[in-house]
Design a protein around this nucleic acid. Structure first.
Length: 675
DNA sequence: GTAGGGTTATAT
DNA sequence: ATATAACCCTAC
């Protein structure tokens, strides 16, 4: 779909950079969890939660990562029965819901799925027993306990303990919650290996001392592989002809809207070489940024291009596979002495001469650059990292969606690396999933097998994440109307970023005032417990309600902007300053997001990882539909036809939506003529 | 599982 | 009080 192009173009620097940050913090959160540093884990998830509220380039494996974070957050709080992530459920029950979502998206062997679920349920029952919640334990036992024969013994035991109201028993003592947590982490890591985040890679390449990125992945060998791979990088490259490079360049330039011709580029390169000092290749030179600022990558230097992509999947590639370069090798054009020292490469370095700084900002961030070497070289490779995704099942996950959209499935992985003297190199990789086909051997990227990246989400969907029944937050401002009229076009799925939902204010649901006090108290407690960061949410800054809301909707195509978020006090530790409120007029809640601009997509109160304390039982809370969800729905109807609600529901990452909800929403959309 | 009419929660 | 998106109920 042409959407890819527009999508890419609409990525803002913030979206891209936030994505880097997102990947980094996910990685750190997993590391912390593995190290049993749950306080740090909580801190990182809080950061993620807040980050995700900002515009983020949300394609690719973001959903998977969010789900993993959600899952682990719930597991992490599973022993606290008074917390809830989804209204009536205990954290572990929510974990089961998330597990189901994960299993839907990624093909998880049924046995594994069952085993994990059973482990969670048993743990939940034990937690209930230990805390004397016999009734609840019984409820869980009856509702979720596996009927499998092998668990019959345990079932009996639990029944007996419940009956006798015994909260102590050797079995209860033997099992440790900490072990359970690690077991769950192992499950997640087996399922999905998080690739080394782009930011860390950059840091490492920059030669920053002491950067040791502990892999999230359990096997530390991976990490070593990573570096090893990096080191060999240069060595592995096969040299190809200029002709090949030219072809590849043609494809890429078209894709990214680069107007410079290959020949021009060569000339520039030559000139640069002559000058010796300009290590970088500047596409920008000829790009005339001013003229066409629009195109996403226009005006960027190659390095920047590359980098963005390297940051783990960039949209473009995922969507256009056709343009994929199929040559399995890397192309290296030596233009100078080449040195293979990989470590030194700093992908982007701006330094020198002609760089139009303005255009390449993002890239520059991480380019410390060492100036040692000088050689120019450009490497384009379609590499393949995949190869070893042994453990990863997921290739199929979302496949259904994909397939339909694209027919060709081939390996999507490709990598473009540009390196010039100075050692700066950049790479573009589309990790994509390791699809069967080509398995070219290269090892790249972060060398870890990571690769499984789960699928590619195609249209940018980022999932708004989260669970279903979340309590509505109270204030959601006036969005309805606006949304109706304002937009509606959203036609194609061009959504770009869809952040996940912001956190939810826990207990603050409907009327803030009522619950506020309580909630604050509890929230605080909770934070302390787990994360330690108790940032008082108590008075959550109440956001001012301005209407500014929707102005910003960014470029995303979708027009309906709903801003659903109303979560008043995000539980996160830091309060977000809401830019918007200029004042303190009647402040209602800060809607930071509104300010941001691109997020139209989420619904109010859902929180990604935070739990609320206290359970409420209220009738039902309305969960407004996000733009993202509406887009999915439209896409689903387009694909399967109206009336096939269940099918549509299961084909998109809806959370907390039933087929009937979809049907009702569709009815509403028709009524509003949004479709 | 879906269609349609009724109900409820919210914003104005 | 009114309008209405989201939800619920129930027949098929």
């Amino acid at each position: 779909m042409s959407a890819s192009a527009s999508k890419v173009s609409s990525l803002s620097d913030e979206q891209i950079i936030n994505r880097w940050g997102f990947d980094y913090y996910v990685f750190k959160a997993l590391s912390a969890f593995r190290d049993a540093d749950y306080t740090a884990f909580t801190h990182f998830t809080s950061i993620i939660e807040n980050l995700v509220v900002r515009p983020v380039d949300g394609h690719s494996d973001m959903i998977v990562k969010l789900r993993c974070m959600q899952f682990l957050s719930r597991i992490n709080n599973g022993d606290k029965l008074d917390l809830t992530f989804e209204e009536p459920k205990t954290p572990l029950e929510s974990a089961v819901s998330v597990l189901e979502s994960i299993c839907r998206d990624m093909s998880v062997p049924p046995r594994e799925q069952e085993r994990v679920k059973q482990a969670i349920i048993e743990t939940l029952i034990m937690v209930c027993l230990r805390s004397g919640e016999f009734t609840r334990a019984e409820e869980v036992l009856l509702r979720h306990f596996s009927d499998a024969e092998d668990s019959a013994g345990k079932k009996k035991l639990f029944e007996s303990l419940i009956r006798r109201r015994r909260s102590s028993h050797s079995v209860l003592q033997l099992s440790s919650y900490a072990d359970f947590k690690q077991d769950m982490l192992d499950f997640i890591e087996r399922l999905y290996r998080v690739p080394e985040p782009f930011l860390l890679q950059m840091l490492k390449r920059s030669g920053h001392p002491g950067v040791s990125s502990e892999p999230v992945t359990s096997s530390s060998q991976d990490r070593q592989k990573t570096s090893a791979a990096a080191e060999h990088h240069g060595g592995v490259c096969a040299r190809l002809s200029l002709h090949s490079l030219r072809q590849v360049y043609g494809v890429l330039s078209e894709r990214y809207g680069v107007s410079v011709s290959f020949t021009q580029l060569q000339q520039e390169l030559e000139e640069e070489q002559e000058q010796e000092e300009s290590p970088e290749l500047h596409l920008a030179l000829s790009e005339t940024p001013r003229e066409q600022p629009e195109p996403p990558y226009a005006g960027m230097t190659i390095s920047r291009l590359v980098q963005e992509d390297d940051s783990q999947l960039s949209a473009a590639e995922e969507e256009e596979e056709e343009t994929q370069i199929s040559s399995p090798h890397r192309i290296v054009i030596p233009s100078g002495p080449d040195s293979d020292d990989p470590e030194v490469r700093t992908p982007v370095r701006r330094s020198d001469t002609h760089n139009h700084s303005s255009e390449c900002s993002p890239a520059q961030i991480c380019t410390p650059a060492r100036h040692t070497q000088k050689h120019n070289r450009i490497v384009l490779s379609s590499d393949v990292e995949a190869e070893d995704h042994a453990a990863s099942p997921p290739s199929s996950r979302r496949s259904s969606r994909h397939k339909q959209q694209k027919k060709s499935v081939h390996s999507e992985s490709k990598c473009v690396m540009v390196e010039d003297d100075g050692g700066s190199s950049a790479q573009v990789c589309s990790p994509a999933r390791p699809s069967s086909s080509s398995s070219s051997p290269a090892v790249r990227r972060s060398a870890r097998d990571t690769q499984r990246q789960s699928r590619i989400v195609l249209s940018s969907d980022v999932e708004p994440e989260d669970h279903a029944t979340s309590p509505p937050s109270s204030r959601r401002s006036s969005r309805h109307k606006q949304q109706q009229k304002s937009v509606h076009s959203a036609g194609e799925s061009a959504l770009v970023s869809s952040p996940a939902h912001p956190s939810s204010p826990a207990s603050v649901r409907r009327s803030d005032r009522d619950t506020q006090n309580q909630s604050s108290e509890s929230e605080c407690v909770m934070e302390v417990e787990d994360g330690g960061s108790c940032v008082q949410h108590s008075t959550p800054a109440r956001p001012s309600a301005t209407d500014t809301q929707r102005h910003n909707r960014s470029v995303t195509v979708s027009s309906e902007s709903e801003d659903h978020n109303s979560s008043p006090a995000p539980q996160t530790p830091r309060r977000r300053s809401s830019p918007s409120s200029g004042g303190a007029h009647k402040r209602r809640r800060a809607r930071w997001q509104d300010v941001s601009g691109t997020h139209e997509n989420w619904s109010d109160e859902e929180s990604l990882f935070s739990a609320t304390s206290g359970r409420s039982s209220k009738k039902y809370s309305r969960k407004m539909w996000t733009v993202q969800e509406s887009e999915w729905l439209k896409e689903g109807v387009r694909r399967f036809g109206a009336g096939h609600w269940e099918k549509i529901r299961s084909s998109f990452p809806f959370t907390g939506r039933t087929a009937v909800n979809l049907k009702d929403r569709w009815r509403t959309m028709l009524k509003l003529r949004l479709v």
